[in-house]
Computed example of a mutant assay.
Amino acid sequence: MGQHSDRVRNALLDAAEELFATDGIDAVSNRRIAEHAGNSNHSAVSYHFGGREELVRALLDRHTAFARARRAELVAELGEDAPITDLLACMILPFTDLLAARPAPSWRARFLQQLRTVPSVAASVAENVRADPLTDQLIHRTRQHFSAVPDGVFAGRARILGHVILDACAEYESRVQAGSVTADWTGLGYFLIDSAAGMLGAPVTHAGDFLGESTATYLL
């Protein structure tokens, strides 16, 4: 009975992630998710998750263990004076490695991209990112590499990187599905690492907190 329930839950999660990724969070009903999962019980989402917020939380959390384990492996390999690219790798590669490990087609990046447009779940996304105990350590070590960059500028660049990295992964995920590129998530990951290092360390011509308070959402 437990295994059957787990299979049903996973089918619902897979269906929800795909539909949310393609159509948006608010455009997809619980009934449609159940039908897409091949479940004749139109109340299946409510039965297994309790409600829409709990479903979204379950989707957000479902690959957390993978990402955190991968991050821990990378952090364990860091030297005391690790270069900035190695620090950024600890934050970016767990996500691109996760996308590489997902069955094709993957919908994860596009689902997270859609989540970003829903203000009511933005706090949950940030909470999920910052809950990893290694995150603050990595952010602190990364910040030390760019001590000459004002705090407001650094925070704004981190926020921009959040959009750039997630959008790049979502676009790449779509191109992989369409068959226009052969998946090379590792290559994309290192391209994003180099790009992030360049943006964070770029010359500062105008200092100021132009984008307001933000979190390093590129850690997704």
Rank of each mutant, 00 (worst) to 15 (best):
L78R: 04
H4N: 10
A58C: 08
L166F: 08
Q113D: 09
P150D: 04
S195I: 01
H145N: 08
P105D: 12
D14M: 10
R71V: 02
D132L: 12
T182E: 14
A58Q: 06
L138K: 03
G2Y: 15
N39Q: 14
E80A: 13
L87W: 03
R9W: 01
G162K: 05
D86W: 06
L93P: 00
G201N: 15
R32Y: 00
L161M: 12
G38P: 07
L200K: 05
L115H: 04
N41W: 02
Q3R: 13
N10G: 06
E35C: 05
E127C: 00
R157N: 06
G38W: 14
D209P: 01
I193D: 05
D6W: 03
R71A: 04
F20E: 02
A37Q: 05
F154H: 10
A67I: 06
I160T: 13
L78G: 04
V28M: 00
I193G: 00
P94W: 13
A168F: 14
A82L: 08
I33D: 02
E173K: 07
Q3P: 00
D14K: 14
Q137G: 07
Q177M: 10
S195C: 06
A131D: 09
D26C: 11
T96V: 05
R157Q: 09
A183I: 02
G198S: 11
P203M: 10
A65Q: 13
L192V: 09
F210R: 13
L98I: 06
S174D: 12
N39I: 15
A65E: 13
P150E: 06
W107G: 00
L12F: 12
G51H: 02
A197M: 05
G212Q: 08
S40P: 01
A100E: 13
A197E: 14
F154Y: 15
R157T: 05
A27G: 04
N128W: 14
